[in-house]
Design a protein around this nucleic acid. Sequence first.
RNA 1: GCUGAAGUGGUGGAAUUGGUAGACACGUUGGACUUAAAAUCCAAUGUCCCCUGGGACGUACGGGUUCAAGUCCCGUCUUCAGUACCA
Length: 1034
Amino acid sequence: MSYHFNDIEANWQKYWAENQTFKASNTSDKPKYYVLDMFPYPSGAGLHVGHPLGYIASDIYARYKRHKGFNVLHPQGYDSFGLPAEQYAIQTGQHPAITTDTNIKTYRRQLDQIGFSFDWSREVRTSSPEYYKWTQWIFIQLFESWYNKDNNQAESVDTLISMFSSEGNANINADCDDDITIFSSEEWNGYPSEEQQDILLKYRLTYLAETEVNWCPALGTVLANDEIVNGVSERGGHSVMRKKMTQWSMRISAYAERLLQGLDTIDWTDSLKESQRNWIGKSVGASVTFDVNDHDEIIDVFTTRPDTIYGVSFMTLAPEHDLVSKITTEDQKAEVDAYIQATAKRSERDRMADVKTISGAFTGAYAEHPFTKQSLPIWIGDYVLAGYGTGAVMSVPCGDQRDYDFATHFNISIPNIFEGVDISEEAYGSKDNVKITNSDFLDGLNCKKASKTAIYELEKLGQGEGKTNYRLRDAVFSRQRYWGEPFPVYYVNGKPQMIAKEYLPIRLPEVEKYLPTEEGEPPLGRADVWAWDTNTNTVVSNDLCHSEQSEESHNGVYPLELNTMPGWAGSSWYFFRYMEDAMRDEAFASEDALNYWENVDLYIGGSEHATGHLLYSRFWVKFMKDRGFVNVEEPFKKLINQGMILGTSAFVYRVNFSTSIFGTFESKSEEEKKYRNEVSKLIPSIFVSKNFFDGKSLLEFSDFMKEKHLKTYQNKDILEKVKSLKEKDSRIISINTHVSNVTDTLASNINKINVKVEYVNASDELDIKGLKQDKEFGEDYASAIFIGNNGEIIESDNDVYKVGREVEKMSKSKYNVVNPDQIVKDYGADSLRLYEMFLGPLEQAKPWNTSGITGVHGFLKKLWKLYIDDNGLKVNDAEPSKEALKTLHKTIKKVEDDIENFSFNTSVSTFMIASNELTAQKCTSKAILEPFLVLLSPYAPHIAEELWSRLGNDPSISTVPFPKFEEKYLVESSKNYPISFNGKMRFTLELPLDMNKDDIEKIVMAHEKTIAQLDGRTPKKVIIVPGKIVNIVG
RNA sequence: GCUGAAGUGGUGGAAUUGGUAGACACGUUGGACUUAAAAUCCAAUGUCCCCUGGGACGUACGGGUUCAAGUCCCGUCUUCAGUACCA
């Protein structure tokens, strides 16, 4: 009887499903444990071997906890709203719901065949109306809340309204928009309803406001800060620009301090906490007010260095700052306008790529120094960001390098206020070991004291105060997309109104196309039935609603919101929905369920969500706690990031190196050849026709390369590496020092440019996509690629390329994806599970190498043979041997420790060692082999269940108690002592463990090998650590 | 630049408090079985040197502490990830 894993695995998966083995109960005497995976977005490509890594780890932990007597909740679901399904819908006209459904079926099939112990009865899908009803409900709650800074929590807007009408807003300490004016209760009560609504909007935790947003024209939507990576959209890599738009926002900034403090209470990795701390970006300093000369205006700035107030020699405003137009003088107007226009044209990416160029313009206006009353010129410069602080800075060139560079460039004075510090070369940014000078009342103080004193004096003048600033911005919550949660919002005279809870969910309407309308409205603008009838409280046809109708003739029918919610809306609270039946309609989860499960004990997922999902969920949970909807302050107690499984991509290097951007080398010294060779490796090539390249910017070119799945390295990698080479040898490349230079060089001097080509079909590594294998040079070589005048890819047999391998992120676009289906078919789910764990530490990124799976598969086959051979079951009731008991108990201890420490890779090798030992011992004892199956079952549940039942036990093994470790079986009577000389181990000696130091020394010193080692010398010292080591120093 | 993590054989990776570096696998080589292959089993496998048995060197590099350092301390380099005109 051999190991037929396919049949065994299918049988047990069927058994688990039919018997609902892993269904969690909300009532139990056992302690609870909640293990959660970050739920997947069901993409069309299905799972690759990287996806299940975290699921396998959490599954092992969940199964282990069941063996340990916990009531385990281990659910799974789908984050099923999102861009890819919508993009696919735009291209094919297929409804995203259908695509999503198909993809979910694929995911489910793939997940099921790996044997996870998920409780599928609690499955959630963020795109199902039963689910997003509650996402909408939470949105309404946010709208109905404001943040009270006095008691540091969110409260109902009703309390705000009653305070307004009884005492006005003068004493209210709220987190709200900056431009709130003070009003009395009489004034409030006298305001028309619409004005009251406008005021309340400035206090609500989700609010509609015109803000500067990241607009992505290619995607046709706005993006949140965390959806932008390196100045381009995270999805698709499209360019992003700043634009003012009226959008829904979430007042997450109100929670900045609590989000920061909360990090100390949770068990997450330091790096992840650090990312969140950076993202929140707390800085302590002061706000200072400067009067503008000859104007009524003031400039507010934020500074972390109030101690340097006497070092201020000018002011700088962001080009977008409101004041700029008001204070610019006639003479300077032309220059300032030109500068503003120039900066507005630059994309975020350009601005980021080029931080070294100093630019700015003088407004002609002056501000007054609060203490010296000196006139300070007011400049604008794009190194000051409109989005941070107040969009204005007090420039202290002696203390800040950016101010220093700006002052040097525009010839502004650089007063020095640091005692004994030389600032002729650069600014002195440090706060340490320096005293302030030339600063009147601050003279002689250190920076810390000077800061406090300066703030005190500013407060006396009424021109400043201590202030804490956060980098964390309010999160834009509107998306101009179809496939997301609709807002439960309609508009009366342009003022947003919430739809009452009992009419939720507001279902996503049907549209005939998933694109924006011709008028530029979001896709929901195409829906025919998308207006709110306040008489019937239903969604009705748009025909009944005419926005141009007067207030009297609207008939109670109003337009509905056209935006949808962003991807993170649904994922910010889904962990609560799992707490009971996901179809429940009376509440998002019952109070009992919330009280019982509390929050997630163990959360496993990728670190790419550090500043998105993981921050937003924490924000929503804190809000829900404030309003009494849940009773926990943090969603995830412990969090582990699984590392990425990397794929191996193949690419080609150019071998013969004829024409190059480096010009021709006349002499061919070995030295030069070496460098050329090195350079050619750095910049392996494909050839691009000059005609094709002409007129294209580097950016456009790189977009083209991306489209063709070719990777360019010009910008950063190549240039930096080339630069380092240049430093080694000046003959190399006097051409390439700046990006612009390369562009020029490429465009004018040559008709070939060198870039790296990669991506071939990794499923058949040697069948290089688009390339022919070169016969002469063997299979590791391939012919060249040309890119023709029209961007077509042409093969050539003139040049020869070496095929290389590089390990990188697994992705469909890189042709390096390994599908788990094939692995499961060939080796079985248990092999896949063991192998993914065996690859290395969970948190670490590691390359996938399919050939290694034979190792764990071989282990399972050997294990099978330990229990069953051609004659059937080998296991009997024989007394276990001492060695077998030792093997078992040392394995129990190691596996238990490993699981508790999430060190799954080392337990797999422990199983192998145990299995090898038991085989060598010819162990057939049930007393050993039966508990061994329980140890293995979290890792390889199918084979464990099968052998468990073949041993005559009732299924399922999944709730059998974990074997108890007993120290007594490991007690040894002797120790194989390593005998070292000067710390180097020379030989070993078996000695009884209870032997004392003196006896050990006598025996060791008398040993012939010791005498040989010492060669007549007398040792200076003999170190003996009983039970550990003997070291002879001589 | 800043923050975080990490550098160990041909490869993935082990090594509990400082105590026998390289567990467990992959790969490679040799052998057994076989007409042959697959599968399976056995042996060897850090590098170098005399090759019976040993010896020297070895955990990115340079120092230090210690009887003893992959592990602790100081400095340097490299890689990966995140982040960045954040005032």
